[in-house]
């Protein structure tokens, strides 16, 4: 019944499919720990996928594309912060408005500049070294470099949260009251965290365009950014677990997509249902206390 789980091809596409989600989840997690609910992660993923692909195609260099994805993600994270804090839209409206604008703008530009479609062609991020000859071993050791980069970012984030600046970021998310008492410039911390979050997400967008899908349409992210928000919750706000959660989502989706058994296709909804169960019935589903509550201390 679950024979797909034994095949190298299944795991290979599950892992590549998980990577953009993992980057987006790490970005959302970082923003979340600083107190921003990064609803604009979907918009950031879409915008950076577009910019990365355009730059890669125009320059002929995939790595310039990845860099462009990172930078555009940074800018979009910052814009998300401006909409949310400076314009006082709040995290949710800011993220959703950004999504509408990025969808419209990328749709317009791709139709103007690439009427025949925007595709990576040969410029895809593939494995950069030869096969070991063992299919199962290849699945683990012969992935594109950015797959391993996601794990490195996760570990680095764990380490960062233990440093003094990391503590400042966490304080901004866990308790506005304490952060202000310690003279933490909360707004600035959140802008900085959103920029970093956007940059990390931007790498995910670049990998989505150049390593997973290979073409750009305005539907290319198909909700992966929101899936990333779910990963943050399933992982109880722990970076390494967020990468594992991304793999779970990707595996469930890939399985539902690849299987011939129609009833097992329903597996695709499992991660979403699981997320709802976690936020409703698990203490682990509680995030940073002051996440998404703006910059003003309310209540006692």
């Amino acid at each position: 019944m679950f024979d797909l789980l034994g095949t190298a091809a299944f795991w290979s596409s599950a892992i590549t499919g998980a990577t953009p989600i993992a980057f987006a989840a790490l970005g959302a997690l970082f923003a979340s720990r600083s107190g921003s609910l990064f609803v604009g992660v979907e918009a950031t993923l879409l915008g950076s996928a577009f910019v990365a692909l355009v730059v890669a195609v125009q320059s002929g260099s995939t790595w310039l594309g990845v860099l462009a994805g990172l930078l555009s993600g940074l800018v979009l994270g910052l814009v998300n912060g401006l909409l949310s804090m400076q314009l006082a839209m709040g995290d949710v409206v800011a993220g959703l408005v950004l999504q509408i604008l990025v969808t419209g703008a990328t749709g317009l530009l791709v139709a103007r500049w690439y009427p025949n479609g925007l595709a990576a062609g040969a410029l895809q991020l593939g494995p950069s070294w030869p096969s070991t000859g063992d299919g199962a071993l290849d699945v683990v050791v012969r992935q594109p470099v950015l797959v391993y980069a996601a794990v490195v970012v996760a570990v680095a984030m764990v380490a960062f949260f233990r440093t003094a600046p990391g503590l400042v970021v966490r304080a901004s998310g866990d308790s506005l009251r304490v952060a202000y008492a310690l003279r933490v410039p909360v707004a600035r911390v959140r802008y900085a965290a959103l920029s970093v979050a956007g940059a990390i997400t931007g790498v995910g967008g670049a990998f989505l365009a150049l390593g997973v899908v290979g073409v750009f349409t305005t539907g290319v992210t198909s909700g992966r950014g929101f899936v990333a928000l779910a990963c943050v919750i399933l992982a109880a706000w722990r970076p390494v677990l967020a990468v594992v959660a991304a793999l779970l989502f990707s595996a469930a989706y890939t399985y539902g997509f690849q299987t011939d058994d129609a009833s097992l296709a329903a597996l695709q909804v499992l991660p979403y249902v699981l997320t709802i169960v976690v936020i409703a019935f698990s203490k682990a589903g509680r995030g940073p206390a002051d996440e998404g509550k703006g910059l003003v201390v309310v209540g006692r």
Binding site: L83, L87, G107, L108, R112
Partner: peptide, 24 residues
């Protein structure tokens, strides 16, 4: 490209909040 309609639909709310921010 009809994507311009999406841009048109998303911009008004930005203007309203921008005016609010400028006012503050």
């Amino acid at each position: 490209p009809d994507a311009i309609t999406t841009v048109m639909q998303g911009l008004p709310v930005v203007v309203v909040f921008l005016v609010g921010a400028l006012a503050r």
